[in-house]
Amino acid sequence: MHELSIAQNILSMVNSRVEKEGIQLEATAVTVMIGEFRNVDPESLEFAFDAMKPSFEFCRNCLLKIISVKAEGICTKSMHSFHPEKQNGFSCPICNSAIKEFKSGEELDIVRIIISTIDQGRLECTK
């Protein structure tokens, strides 16, 4: 459900970025990184993004690209690097110890925005 507010955040950040850049411009793509240990469902996010983008002036033709980032944990006992798996109860598969920290898997960031000049042809079409 909160994918709606996440989509809204992305769109308004992109929208104000375009606004800052100048006139006759629009965003054509935004790339986001979503870690495995964030509660974001990519499909719901895409759905919400497409549903909301018409109401953001400079994002109407913006594509959302999602990079899913696999989690990598470091274990408490031996600093092993591993992928936390449900079937191990998220423990380290080598020494069975807990996760001390995540090296990756908690991202929720915009990493790339592409801004282009508005396609005149398309602009006329819509008039």
Binding site: N9, I10, T28, L108, D109, R112, I114, I115
Partner: peptide
């Protein structure tokens, strides 16, 4: 169509919260 900005940034999506 002409790409004017292709920016690699790092912005926290939940930054406002």
């Amino acid at each position: 169509m002409h790409e004017v900005v292709d920016e690699h940034i790092l912005q926290r999506i939940m930054g406002n919260n």
